[in-house]
Nucleic acid binder design. Sequence first.
DNA 1: GCCGTACCGTACCGTACGGTTCGGCTCATA
DNA 2: TATGAGCCGAACCGTACGGTACGGTACGGC
Lengths: 211, 211
Amino acid sequence: MESSPAIETTTPSARQQAVLDAVLGLMVEAGDQLTMDAVARRASCSKETLYKWFRDRDGLLTATVQWQASRVRAGRYEARALDVATLSESLRDFATTWLEVISSSASIALNRIAIGDAGSRKSNLGSIVLANGRFAIGDRLKPLLEAGRAAGLLAFDDSETAFRTFFGLVGRDVQIRLLLGDAIDFDAAEIRRDAASAVEQFLALYGQPQS
Amino acid sequence: MESSPAIETTTPSARQQAVLDAVLGLMVEAGDQLTMDAVARRASCSKETLYKWFRDRDGLLTATVQWQASRVRAGRYEARALDVATLSESLRDFATTWLEVISSSASIALNRIAIGDAGSRKSNLGSIVLANGRFAIGDRLKPLLEAGRAAGLLAFDDSETAFRTFFGLVGRDVQIRLLLGDAIDFDAAEIRRDAASAVEQFLALYGQPQS
DNA sequence: GCCGTACCGTACCGTACGGTTCGGCTCATA
DNA sequence: TATGAGCCGAACCGTACGGTACGGTACGGC
């Protein structure tokens, strides 16, 4: 269960970024009719250019996924002097950010595309999304969990297992419901509430009683 | 957050079931090239028959989803005399069954299809899958939870919230990883282990101390 | 002023696929 | 043995879409 590194590639030029944003916009508004024609029209560029820059449709999608991933990287969580308050605060931030990401229309659209072609063995959008989503989050959260353990605030054997529990408590059924088209009303307040109660539950399971 | 009833329709004839099984097989083996031609070839029937029986491609997919759902309905969990042992045993059964379902290749393929066209507003495979998956499970688990509460074994205000926690603890990152093409080795022993520890955690959060 | 480069817009090609039509086979009923 | 319903297999149609080709324009370097 090694963590895949979040793939990094040469950043696209400004014009190319505009194209990728057009793709994202199109995904969100009409995920089905994501045709090369539509992209070219929306981005005011020619299909020839699309093919020159991104090789083929798959390359365009891959670049889009990576482009979106590159700007989701949220703030880091430095292991400052940890007490139970700052730890749970950091965990809440983490949970909140994660819930905001997975409930954003861009993420939903992107995951739909990636899941769709994970069924066809060609291309590997799925693994890219996984590497930049689930596994990137794990890589960023585990140091915090381990710092919490080092500070005597948490108790667990395997940080991977602890992380997966955290993931489940935070995400619950949200992502699958959104992906399947369920319209959950999920405003910022609701997200904060859910994040807080998930952290509370996580600490109930893994927290070390402070003597 | 009303629970949608699991849609029930007239059961297909034996021949029709064979066709639907062909669709399922095709989904699993090559989810992308799920064409009407391929289905007809695999089921040794004519496209004319497909269109007569199922109206159009969408009707065929809908019937397939419902057909698959109809045979997933696992055993019921009668509220026998509840003590903590039988309750946690029932919960373990539940979790095990659920994990087996979501990790089965049929379920993965089906969810991929449903998610794929949840992006296009036409058709509502997504809601059908939700109704027969996530919500059907909820409807079947909640009575058990409430029986546990009535017996003084569990403590919670809202059975929906308690269920969603259970869902998260059991499923964690499994479904999204499988949908995105991650190859988790998930044998029966692993599933039982995961189910058991999820139930243990759930009881740690919601269990009522037995005096 | 001339040329090469990069790009836009559009027309075009090939193919795949949803859906329709039709000829022919089988079989049950009369 | 005639008839018709039900179905198979194959040919067919229209369209949508990925990918290519090409004419035209703007611009920087010589």
